[in-house]
Amino acid sequence: MCKVKAIKALTLLALLAMLVGTTVYMHDFGSPENAAMDDYFIQNGQAETGSNNIVAAVLFDYRGLDTIGEASVLFAAACAIFLLFRRSEE
């Protein structure tokens, strides 16, 4: 039991060290490297969609398929909860 816990703790520490070590290779905070797509959205989003909120333009126009998947996930979760609690209602 104690051995298992020690192995788990060591694995967790290794994971933490790995995650913190990865941050060394990240780009500097505040200067993203590949921003061409986002610059296009900022420059042309207003003229193409007529929306001032570029996040809403990306959410509902450029990447609308993501949003419909997300709405479907929420719908499916609500349906699953409906089914789960159905028997206890009567």
Binding site: S51, N52, A56, A57, F60
Partner: peptide, 24 residues
């Protein structure tokens, strides 16, 4: 919902954005 918006800051027009308000 089809007011043409040029690039740049503006005070905001409610009837713009195409289908975005309806989807909202």
């Amino acid at each position: 919902f089809g007011t043409v918006i040029p690039f740049g800051p503006n005070p905001g027009y409610l009837v713009s954005g195409g289908v975005l308000p309806l989807m909202n």
